[in-house]
Design a protein around this nucleic acid. Structure first.
Lengths: 149, 149
DNA sequence: TCCTAAATAAGAATAATTACTATTTACCAC
DNA sequence: GTGGTAAATAGTAATTATTCTTATTTAGGA
């Protein structure tokens, strides 16, 4: 369900953000794709109709869409690779603000399986559950985003 | 359970890789941490005892540890941020080789909950299950890693 | 002990993201 | 509708993570 320009305008305005045609075009490109596009993907798609579009506008618009709750970023730690030597089956509890990652051991989660239909197309090597939220330290500051480390 | 130098040496040698003191130090720094460290974190930790250590060596060692199956990278798309405007509850099926991400709808997965103990420390806003594997196109090429796009 | 292929270190190159600044534009008050 | 103002845009520069290149060193087998 694609939002109409008027619906999207309302969302923006409720947050005191301005609604622009670039923003609607970027929204449309994102919502019309099931490819989980990157910034570059969106930029080149929208650039076709807005030749002067800048990357900055794409980044900026995505931030706003996230703020509004209309889009989300599925790559939580894209800014830096993170490693783990713990090869025991486990899952993660991630603080959305400070990016701390806690380990989570849970048999039920270990045993999750894919539906047979999907299973036969993919060769599954594992799975991982990520719970997202705010740790005790960040809970009080949920709405104050943290700057780069 | 930290591997001894000799155990780790064996792992390296089985793959035709050389065992160096830098590699053991990096392994120790990684395995001794529950912080899911970044490359930079490991670099500065190990640099204390190996002042000439280079970033390259850290990257290189982490690649080898992944190859051996002793470490893993928890940030799957760290190279590029990826976005999604689908706010319906869903999960992901990720191809480890071509990085394609398919959506997965599954009520059982939607209903997962955290243990009460963990729940009271964190303020959970959601969760996501990621199945990892190889898509039908990449299945035959599982062992041929793909270069950067 | 010697040889050779692989690892290291140091620095340059690349790619994604963020910051900066002048110009333009949305939208509110009138 | 007009004008004022704060925010958005575009273009460019700066920053940061990662990869590449090359000369030197070293592990491990002969």
């Amino acid at each position: 369900m694609l939002l109409t320009p008027e619906q999207l305008r309302r969302h923006f305005q409720e947050r005191g953000l301005k609604f622009t045609s670039q923003r609607y075009a970027i929204y449309r490109a994102l919502a019309g794709s099931t490819e989980h596009p990157s910034v570059e993907d969106l930029y080149s798609t929208v650039k076709a109709s807005y030749p002067t579009l800048s990357m900055n506008t794409v980044y900026n618009t995505l931030e706003s869409l996230k703020e509004i709750g209309i889009a989300s970023e599925i790559s939580l730690w894209h800014d830096k690779a993170r490693f783990d030597a713990n090869q025991a089956s486990h899952h993660h509890l991630v603080c959305l603000r400070c990016k701390k990652i806690e380990d989570l051991y849970d048999d039920t989660l270990d045993r999750l399986a894919l539906s047979p239909k999907a299973k036969h197309r993919y060769r599954i090597t594992g799975h991982r559950v990520e719970f997202h939220g705010y740790c005790s330290r960040c809970k009080p500051k949920m709405n104050k985003p943290q700057k780069r480390r």
